[in-house]
Amino acid sequence: MVFSRSISILRTITLIFIVGGVAACASPARGVLAPVSIAASDTTKVDLLVATTRAPTSQKGVFFTGERGHDLNLANVVVSIPPNRNPGTIQWPRRLPGDPERNFVTTAVDTINVRDIRTWYREHAASGRRVLIFVHGFNTRFEDAVFRFAQIVHDSRAEVTPVLFSWPSRGALLDYNYDRESTNFSRSELGYVIQQAVNSPDVSEITIMAHSMGSWPVMEALRDIAMQGRRISPKITDVILASPDLDIDVFRKQLIDIGRERPHISIFVSANDRALRLSRLISGQVTRVGGVDLTNASYKAQLKMASGITVYDLSALRNGDSLNHTQFATSPEVVRLFGERLLRGQSLSDADPNMPGNFGATAVEAGLAIGTVTGAALSAPIRIFESTVRR
């Protein structure tokens, strides 16, 4: 049995490195963020506020490295997205400069003084004054984070003011521990960014979305706010954790420390997430929250005590990335769900059975899944388990 498990672990590691190697071979040349001045009338612009703890660099078109900086830096980045593309995809420039008609490119990258963050919110307030703060995951270069978040905002068609928080990731599979420590290094600055959004009179509602390892600084920043005796502002209505690389025992303790007066939490999980299998191996065989198998009664029992949580099980999805780790951004169904429901404060359990994308409720989940269940098991590819207790 030990031998069989070892073979399984080796296969998982080999697959991840093969896929990572393929992705690396397909990666663009450095410097893709150098602004392109060519105008293209049929492209779409996404205007981002970027807050980062990465070290700045003078290298053209890079702006920030994977190393740790001394201060929080802000920038306004405008991303141009080409027409005639499939949702969930990023069209990287094959050569520099990129072609706005065919590639993701930037049209402006301007530094912002930290003291001027409220001015930026005032000048970029979306209708409804809703803000989306996104925190990327492990193995993510700065340009990857910028283009991925712009893609999510564009494809979801969400009416939000987008804010990217980018912590120092070296963008290398072998730097897992460095990246994990970088999330600890950055959690206070993330808390500052969150509080600045809360304090802005031009912001009425905040959703925080984190992917993978980015879930750690989000939960820790919220925990720090709660532990410092400050209540979490009701402006923060939702926290979305996509494939969270969180120790399930630590996550439960974080929820206890944050307390019951917290935002509603939505979690995207997949029992087939190969990246989180490797993370579990590295982390002492403790299950990661994003990799739980909800057919296992013991995981349901652990989550049962938490209220105000909705879990979206993506295990049956057959599109997105080959590791089943970035489906929140690469699966058209999930991106559409994200835009049409979660950012409008709606739950899938309240969805119209005839809504596009095969998300209609078809059967009631038996028994207690998380808290008191009133949600439904959705027809493949997504199932939902929802608590009745929301803020």
Rank of each mutant, 00 (worst) to 15 (best):
M1L: 13
S4Q: 13
T12M: 03
L15F: 10
G21T: 07
A24K: 10
G31R: 15
G31E: 10
S37V: 12
A40T: 06
K45P: 00
R54Y: 05
Q59R: 15
K60V: 08
G61T: 04
F64W: 05
F64M: 08
L72V: 05
N76L: 04
N103Q: 02
V105W: 00
T106R: 04
I112Y: 05
I112T: 08
R115H: 10
H124Y: 02
G128H: 13
N139H: 05
A150S: 14
H154M: 11
V160R: 08
Y178C: 07
N184P: 02
F185L: 09
S186I: 10
R187K: 14
I194K: 12
S212C: 08
S212A: 10
R223K: 14
I225W: 02
P234W: 05
P244E: 02
V250R: 03
K253H: 04
D257P: 00
R260C: 11
H264C: 03
S266M: 09
I267E: 08
A271E: 12
L278G: 07
G284T: 09
V292P: 00
L303S: 07
K304Q: 07
M305I: 04
A306G: 03
D313H: 01
S315F: 00
A316Q: 12
R318K: 07
R318H: 07
T326N: 10
F328P: 01
P332G: 14
F359I: 14
G367C: 09
V373E: 08
V373M: 03
G375H: 01
P381D: 08
V389T: 11
